[in-house]
Simulated scan of single mutants.
Amino acid sequence: LLFPEKRCPTLSMPTNGGFKCLDGAYFGSRCEYYCSPGYQLKGDRIVTCMDNKVWSGRPASCVDTEPPRIQCPSVKEKTAEPNKLTARVFWDTPEGRDTADGILTDVILKGLPPGSHFPEGDHKIQYTVYDRAENKGTCKFLVKVRVRRCAKLNAPDNGYIKCSGDGNNYGATCEFSCVGGYELQGSPARVCQYNLGWSGVEPTCAPMNINVNVRTAAALLDQFYEKRRLLIISTPTAANFFYRMQLGMLQPAQCGLDLRHVTVVELVGVFPAQIGRIGVKLLPPSLALQLRLLLRIPHYSFNIVVMDKHGMDKERYPFPATPAELFALIDKFPLRKDEMKLQAEIGQSCP
Rank of each mutant, 00 (worst) to 15 (best):
L2Q: 08
T15I: 13
T15W: 04
G17K: 03
F19N: 04
L22A: 10
D23Q: 10
G28W: 14
R30A: 04
C31V: 08
Y33R: 08
C35F: 05
C35W: 01
Y39P: 04
N52Y: 05
K53E: 15
W55I: 14
S56E: 14
S56N: 12
G57W: 06
A60R: 03
T65L: 11
V75I: 10
K76W: 01
K76A: 06
A80W: 02
E81G: 13
E81I: 00
K84I: 00
K84Q: 13
A87T: 02
P94K: 07
D98N: 06
D98L: 02
I103Q: 15
D106G: 13
V107K: 04
I108D: 12
I108W: 14
L109P: 10
L109R: 09
G111Q: 03
P113H: 08
H117N: 12
H117M: 06
G121T: 01
G121V: 01
D122F: 01
T128C: 15
Y130T: 02
E134W: 07
N135W: 00
F141I: 03
V145W: 02
V145G: 00
V147D: 04
V147H: 00
R149I: 08
A151H: 10
L153K: 08
L153T: 05
N154I: 02
D157E: 14
Y160W: 09
G167A: 09
G171L: 09
G171F: 09
T173N: 12
T173K: 15
C174I: 01
E175F: 11
S177V: 02
C178M: 02
G180R: 08
Y182H: 08
L184I: 03
L184V: 01
Q185H: 09
G186C: 01
P188Y: 00
N195D: 15
G197V: 02
G200D: 01
T204S: 09
I210Q: 00
N211F: 00
A217C: 07
L220D: 00
D222H: 11
D222F: 02
D222A: 13
E226N: 08
S234F: 08
A239F: 12
Y243Q: 04
Y243G: 10
R244P: 00
Q246C: 06
G248F: 05
C255D: 13
G256D: 15
G256I: 08
L259R: 05
L259Y: 12
T263W: 03
L267A: 05
Q274M: 15
I275L: 14
R277C: 02
V280I: 11
L282A: 09
L282R: 10
P284S: 13
S286Q: 13
A288G: 04
R296E: 15
F302N: 03
V305S: 13
M307V: 07
M312A: 13
Y317E: 05
T322V: 10
L329I: 12
E339V: 08
K341Y: 11
K341I: 14
I346R: 15
